[in-house]
Design a protein around this nucleic acid. Structure first.
Length: 360
DNA sequence: AATATTTGACCGGC
DNA sequence: GCCGGTCAAATATT
């Protein structure tokens, strides 16, 4: 009923294999890796915004039986639609065919794909997602470990439900930035076990802005993935230890507020029957237009005027334009930074669903 | 003091 | 023995 089960439901329905016959998708897979990534990125963004909208709606409608149920259903369907689209995109992923130079270490050319490790221990089902940006998946997680995985450039962080102890919630996830030149960086999130605690549900999320303390830190997903946190700086100094990072609580609150504005504005336009995008100037390809839909959303543009105006030093590429500005404004500019160093860098949190498949 | 993260060590499967 | 996952002492922040 929460994120995981909704994803699971969508996976069973949308991970279908034969869908790749769609014309647009085959065109995507033709070799336009960047375009494919752009589409996936925007879909991911839409999905994560839907999740946030859902959290907001459920919070606002809590206790209002019919309205709450309706909102839950509709937003669940929207979320599912995004998931299906992302699954389709994953099945048509161009990155699957051309091995990226970074992803296949040239060291041992004999064995290109690392031997798939057998399912570990129990037959715990795992849901694997590829994520693109910091995202609140609705649950509260507590980090309990981080490890440098063999032949990867980025460490893997291990989380379990914050209610693991008091509610005996078995939910876990681990997160690892994917090797490669993805911009923004993509992360692999693997969920294991289902949540059995309702306390981790979105409606129960503590308000970090007001609570400010342990509760905020209990939800590491609110913190940047790979951002240069005070903790990472401490580690660069060779000092361990954790704790709270107030400046990131502020960032998170700022981002939440801005995204709230985006959501409210977008929803208002939808309810008014207006389009959330304009398609005045068409880009090179359909894909580019698709990718730009989100960026050109009036609501989004209104919510990110600063970045749009001060994007001189921003990621304004020959192809990118507003799409990238939007992307970086919403997440990257606030939350993303270079990873620390080699061995152990903070790789806190991310999420935001892009696609997933059962790997066990 | 309480609570969170960091990080090296340890454990168990392959 | 390698490697991924977990533990727990140390440390940081509120």
């Amino acid at each position: 009923m929460q994120a995981q089960s909704r994803l699971a439901a969508a996976a069973s329905g949308g991970g279908g294999s034969g869908i790749s016959g769609s014309g647009g998708i085959s065109r995507l897979g033709g070799g336009a890796g960047e375009e494919h990534e752009a589409v996936v990125r925007e879909l991911t963004r839409g999905h994560e915004l839907t999740a946030r909208l859902r959290a907001e709606a459920l919070r606002a409608l809590r206790g209002q039986g019919q309205a709450e149920a309706t909102a839950t259903f509709i937003l669940g369907e929207v979320s599912r639609a995004f998931t299906v689209c992302l699954s389709i995109m994953a099945s048509a992923s161009p990155s699957a065919s051309p091995p990226q130079p970074d992803e296949t270490p040239p060291a041992d050319s004999a064995v290109s794909p690392p031997p798939p490790r057998a399912a570990r221990e129990d037959n715990v089902p795992r849901k694997r997602l590829l994520t693109a940006s910091p995202y609140d998946d609705g649950y509260q997680w507590r980090k309990y470990g981080q490890k440098k995985i063999n032949n990867t450039n980025f460490p893997r962080s291990y989380y379990r439900c914050s209610y693991h102890r008091e509610r005996r919630c078995p939910a876990q996830k681990h997160v690892q930035q994917r090797d490669g030149d993805d911009v923004p960086a993509l992360h692999v999130v693997v969920y294991t076990h289902e949540h059995t605690c309702l306390q981790g549900a979105p409606a129960e999320l503590p308000d970090a802005a007001t609570n400010g303390g342990a509760a905020a830190a209990a939800s590491p997903d609110y913190f940047p993935a790979g951002g240069e946190t005070p903790s990472s700086l401490r580690r660069l100094r060779g000092v361990g230890g954790g704790g709270l990072q107030p400046q990131f609580v502020d960032h998170r609150a700022a981002m939440e507020e801005r995204e709230r504005q985006v959501l409210v504005s977008s929803l208002a336009r939808v309810l008014q029957g207006r389009q959330c995008y304009d398609d005045d100037d068409d880009d090179d390809t359909d894909v580019a237009s698709l990718g730009a839909v989100h960026a050109r959303a009036p609501a989004a543009a209104a919510a990110a005027p600063v970045a749009a105006s001060s994007s001189s030093s921003g990621p304004v590429d020959a192809a990118g334009e507003e799409l990238d500005v939007m992307d970086y404004d919403m997440t990257d500019a606030l939350f993303w930074g270079p990873f620390g160093t080699d061995s152990n860098s903070y790789d806190g949190n991310l999420t935001s669903t892009r696609c997933f498949d059962l790997i066990n």
